[in-house]
Simulated scan of single mutants.
Amino acid sequence: MIDVYSWPTPNGHKVHIALEELGLPYTAHPINIGQGDQFSEEFLTISPNNKIPAIIDSEGPGHQPISIFESGAILLYLTEKAGELMPRDIRGRFETLEWLMFQMGGLGPMLGQAHHFRQYAPEQIDYAVDRYTNEAARLYGVMDRRLAKREWLAADAYTIADIAAYPWIRPHENQGQNLDDYPNLKRWYETISARPAVARGLEVLADARPAALDDEAREQLFGRTQYQKR
């Protein structure tokens, strides 16, 4: 059994969707990042960077428990465990890894900044809004060009590269983007959205998340609390 310590955010959704696609048994445990659960000693034991998600697989390598943090590492572990969603040939594998790294190193961080400065920053900073909205548009363009002549991001197959990128495109309006401007990306997005396992993954812990952030949640997520020495 895999225990997933998570919250319904893009990085959490990546792992929830992968587990549903792979059919691996798991139990989801909410880590309410708006209430500071990510800073608890118990969670820091398995996620030293105090970020969700993290997992503990009681049936890890050699039938021994293993804990893993960082969503990209978790995706790699899950696909290795199940033997699916990752091409077996070396070219397809590294193509998938390229686009997984694209999401981890660029798409996620930059879209996250666009989301933050457009939705959550306590003051409007035009330079930051313009910078990250424009970078979001550039990254959307990269994906749109990639998908112009192929169905999926990598290896002509649905892989963890697609699973990693998809949740970050869902809040496109909050990033200042219109999918009609990226027809190939829109087709890809709609195809993934129609997958039953994706719909199930998006429902994981969905009822636990409040509709809006209160002052406490803003402090936990964006205030000085996250910078305290632990």
Rank of each mutant, 00 (worst) to 15 (best):
A161C: 05
Q119R: 13
R150H: 10
R138G: 02
F94K: 06
A165F: 05
G176I: 07
I90Q: 14
F94M: 12
F102R: 01
E98P: 14
E98A: 15
R170Q: 11
Q113I: 02
M101F: 11
A197T: 08
N178P: 01
E190L: 07
H116R: 06
A82E: 12
L202V: 06
G92I: 12
G92T: 13
L107D: 00
R131Q: 11
A194P: 06
R138K: 08
G201W: 09
Y166I: 07
D130G: 09
A148Y: 03
D156S: 08
A161P: 03
A136Y: 02
E173T: 13
I90P: 08
I90Y: 12
V198E: 02
G112F: 06
A206V: 12
I90K: 14
K149G: 14
A154E: 07
M101I: 14
Y127P: 00
R93A: 14
A148V: 09
A128E: 13
D162V: 01
A121L: 15
Q119G: 10
G83E: 15
M143Q: 03
N184D: 10
G141D: 01
L185F: 00
Q175I: 09
T159Y: 04
D181E: 13
R91F: 13
V129W: 07
T96I: 12
A114S: 12
W152T: 05
R200Y: 11
I125D: 09
S193K: 11
R131G: 08
I160T: 08
L185I: 04
A199I: 14
M104Y: 08
E98M: 15
A197M: 06
L139G: 05
R118D: 00
M104I: 14
A82M: 10
I160C: 05
H116W: 09
N184L: 05
V129Y: 09
A154R: 03
L100A: 08
A199H: 12
R187F: 04
L205T: 06
Q103F: 05
E135Y: 12
R138H: 11
Y120E: 12
K186F: 01
M143S: 03
M101K: 10
G92N: 11
E135L: 06
A157Y: 04
N174A: 11
R138P: 01
D162L: 02
W168T: 01
L107V: 05
V142G: 05
Q119V: 13
L153F: 03
R146S: 00
D180A: 13
I163E: 05
Y182F: 14
G108Q: 06
G83Q: 14
D180T: 14
Q175V: 10
R131D: 09
W188I: 02
M143K: 02
W188G: 01
Y158T: 06
A154Q: 07
M104L: 08
I192K: 04
L202D: 03
Q119E: 13
P109M: 07
D181L: 06
L202G: 03
R170T: 12
L111R: 02
I160K: 00
R145D: 15
Y158C: 03
A194D: 10
L107Y: 07
D180W: 10
G108R: 02
Q119T: 15
A194V: 04
R138T: 09
E95R: 12
